[in-house]
Amino acid sequence: MKIPSFDSLKVGEEIPALITPPVTRHTLALYCGASGDHNPIHVDIDFAKSSGLDDVIAHGMLSTGYLARMITNWVPQSTLRSWKNRFTAMTHIGDIVTCTGKITEKFEEGGEKLVRLELQTNTPQAQTIIAEAVVALE
């Protein structure tokens, strides 16, 4: 991985996007087991209907996991200082998740050179996560 230098980055610049295959029931079954989030709303259609939904919905943290992959494809994980995720809409079966991010600020704090990113995930219907991350670069 070629780590971008702090000086080479510009506010407004986009980082390489990540686009996933469509979310399937199999995706959610694997994520349910692997993550430990066994909430049946993600894997049991009967339960989802009893909650007033038409079908199961994806775990919000699955899309967060995809955002993390976008970040760590771009810079090593060790550079990640903080990260805030707000879930704004549901992700449904068949949705492709598009992760994007751009640099919104460059600043120095605590002796580190920091880059603030605005990140989001979108499905074809809606923005599903709005997020902000701070990474330290040299």
């Binding site: 709303i41 919000g60 943290m61 060790s78 903080s82 990260w83």
Partner: peptide
């Protein structure tokens, strides 16, 4: 009950791997 629950936000601060 779980039927009413949604995940609103998840925020992280990292200090070590």
């Amino acid at each position: 009950s779980l039927e009413k629950l949604l995940h609103g936000e998840e925020n992280f601060k990292y200090f070590a791997p």
